[in-house]
C-alpha cells in the first residue's frame, strides 16, 4: 500500500530554501544597484581588495582570522585611494587612473602584505605569552602541592579523594573524572615547555 505524501511537511522544508534564494537574490539585486550607481568605487574596491579576496578563498578556518588580518590592513591601504576618488572627479576614468598608478597599488598591496605579516607574527608571540603565564600558574600550583606533601606526606599523591577513609569528594564527581595523580613527587617539578 503506497504511503500518502506528507502534504503538510513539504512546504515546511521548501520554506528555508526559498528564503535563502530570496536572500541571495536580494544581495545580487543590491550589488547590481551598487555596481550601476557607483561603478568607479566598485572597480577601485574590487581591484584594491584582491588580496583580501585571495585570503578569503585560501583561508579554510571557520572564523577566517587571516582574512580579518589581511582585510583590515588591505582596507587601510585602499582607504586613501578611495578618499582621493571621492574627493576628485569620482568617475571610472579616474578610478582607472588610480588603479594604474603603481604607487597607489603598492600602498594597497603592501598594506595587505603587512596584514599577512601580522597574522604570521602575532600568534607565536601570544602563544609564548600564554605559555609563560601558564608556567607561572603551574609553578604556583606545584609549589602548593609540594607544601601539602611536606605537611601531609606522600600518600596524599597516591590516594584519590573519594578513597580517603571512605569520604566522598565534596564535588561528588565520579572517580573516573578525577585526574590521575602524579606517580612521583619528582613529577611535580615538571612544567610544560613553552612553544617555540
Amino acid at each position: 500500500m503506497a504511503r500518502e505524501p506528507n502534504l503538510e511537511q513539504a512546504p515546511r522544508q521548501a520554506a528555508p530554501v526559498k528564503k535563502a534564494s530570496m536572500k541571495s537574490l536580494l544581495w545580487v539585486f543590491m550589488l547590481a544597484i551598487v555596481i550601476f550607481a557607483f561603478p568607479e568605487s566598485v572597480i577601485l574596491l574590487f581591484l584594491g581588495l584582491l588580496p583580501t579576496v585571495v585570503a578569503l578563498i585560501i583561508d579554510k578556518s571557520p572564523k577566517k582570522y587571516s582574512t580579518f588580518c589581511v582585510g583590515s590592513m588591505n582596507i587601510t591601504g585602499v582607504f586613501p585611494a578611495m578618499l582621493e576618488l571621492w574627493a576628485g572627479q569620482n568617475n571610472i576614468s579616474h578610478a582607472i587612473e588610480i588603479i594604474t598608478n603603481v604607487f597607489d597599488l603598492i600602498v594597497m598591496y603592501a598594506a595587505a602584505t603587512f596584514g599577512w605579516l601580522l597574522f604570521m607574527a602575532i600568534p607565536p608571540v601570544v602563544n609564548g605569552l600564554l605559555a609563560v603565564v601558564a608556567q607561572h600558574r603551574i609553578a604556583q600550583l606545584r609549589s602548593r602541592q609540594r607544601e601539602l606533601i611536606k605537611e601531609w606526606g606522600d600518600d596524599i599523591i597516591a590516594r584519590p579523594l573519594d578513597q580517603a577513609d571512605g569520604v566522598k569528594s565534596a564535588s561528588g564527581q565520579a572517580q573516573s573524572q578525577t585526574p590521575a595523580p602524579p606517580s612521583d613527587i619528582e613529577d611535580l617539578d615538571e612544567v610544560p615547555p613553552a612553544p617555540s
Binding site: S61, K63, Y65, S66, F68, C69, V70, G71, S72, M73, I75, T76, G115, L118, F119, I122, P123, P124, V125, V126, N127, L130
Partner: peptide, 15 residues
Amino acid sequence: RTSNQVAAVTSILIM
C-alpha cells in the same frame, strides 16, 4: 584560537 583572535583584533585596531 586565542592567538589568532589576538592577531585579527590587532589588525582591526590598527585599521
